[in-house]
Design a protein around this nucleic acid. Structure first.
Length: 277
DNA sequence: GTCCATGTTCTTTA
DNA sequence: CTAAAGAACATGGA
């Protein structure tokens, strides 16, 4: 489900409904999606107020009023939304956080933040007082080409694998790496440390343009992804290589090829993205 | 039954 | 030591 644009869109669609609200209770949760295991979630959350909600890489970071933090990762199929407490509970809903009413008006219906995740690759991660776990690379949207070049030149991995590495650059996933490499005419298997500064400058500029456009289009709904209102994104209609195996390249009509790199499907145009090695 | 899936982490292999 | 490759997690759709 979620790469940077999708996670940003979820934040954009739920933050306003959460900020300033007190957590009144935990209605239901499955312990295995809570980290660390056996963490007393209700004991730490109930009574706290949500101060801010923001995105870091693919994580949705919640700041509580007493300077404690946790984040929710959507994994591959996670959905996060604010719903009325009497709304039907979908199968695979693993966490429901009761929100205290915003006002005292009796007409306001009780609401819950709900986390639903069929494959359970996602979860809630308690951070305590330290929001920066130190295991993530820079944000692509604020990174400089020099910064990216320095990091890429330290590894001989294929550029596709390097860009998927959250410690090297944080927030990209399979869709946006493939799309960015196509846009910058770089073969996915080109060695990261053999790319020129000019190529990396172009690559980063494509990454930024594509991510911004994807956020404007509220993410890519290929399969499972929905925003905080349950609404699909639109950027999947603008994919040029991802999921287009065998279809004609939008620039040169050559059939888009698919190969496996880093254990993931990798889509590219063999004509527009020549291997330079 | 088969293969595939927007992610991360751990283990095995080279 | 490094890094590549593979498996694992769990569920569902084509």
């Amino acid at each position: 489900m979620p790469e940077l644009p999708e996670v940003q869109t979820v934040v954009n669609t739920i933050a306003g409904q959460l900020i300033g609200r007190r957590i009144a209770g935990i209605a239901h949760h499955r312990q295995t999606i809570i980290h660390p295991r056996n963490f007393n979630l209700a004991g730490h959350l109930v009574g706290a107020r949500i101060q801010s909600v923001h995105r870091r890489a693919k994580r949705i970071i919640f700041e509580l009023n007493d300077n404690r933090y946790f984040y929710i990762h959507l994994g591959m199929t996670g959905h996060l939304s604010v719903q009325n407490s009497d709304a039907p509970v979908l199968k695979h809903t693993h966490l429901m956080i009761d929100l205290a009413p915003k006002s005292r008006r009796r007409s306001e219906k009780p609401a819950q933040l709900r986390f639903c995740d069929p494959r359970r690759f996602g979860g809630l991660f308690w951070l305590g007082g330290q929001p920066d776990t130190g295991d993530l690379g820079p944000e692509p949207l604020t990174m400089t080409a020099r910064q990216l070049a320095k990091r890429l030149h330290q590894t001989a991995r294929p550029i596709k694998n390097a860009l998927m590495d959250q410690k090297l650059i944080a927030g990209l996933g399979n869709i946006y790496v493939d799309e960015s490499l196509f846009a910058s005419h770089i073969h996915p298997r080109d060695c990261a440390n053999r790319l020129s500064l000019a190529q990396i400058t172009e690559l980063l500029s494509c990454i930024k343009r594509i991510l911004r456009s994807a956020i404007r289009h509220r993410g890519s709904s290929v399969r499972d992804y929905r925003d905080g209102h349950g609404r699909a994104g639109e950027y999947q209609n603008l994919h040029r290589v991802y999921g287009r195996t065998g279809a004609a390249c939008i620039k040169c009509s050559t059939p888009i090829q698919r190969m496996i790199l880093g254990g993931r499907s990798t889509h590219f145009c063999p004509q527009c993205q020549k291997l330079r090695q």
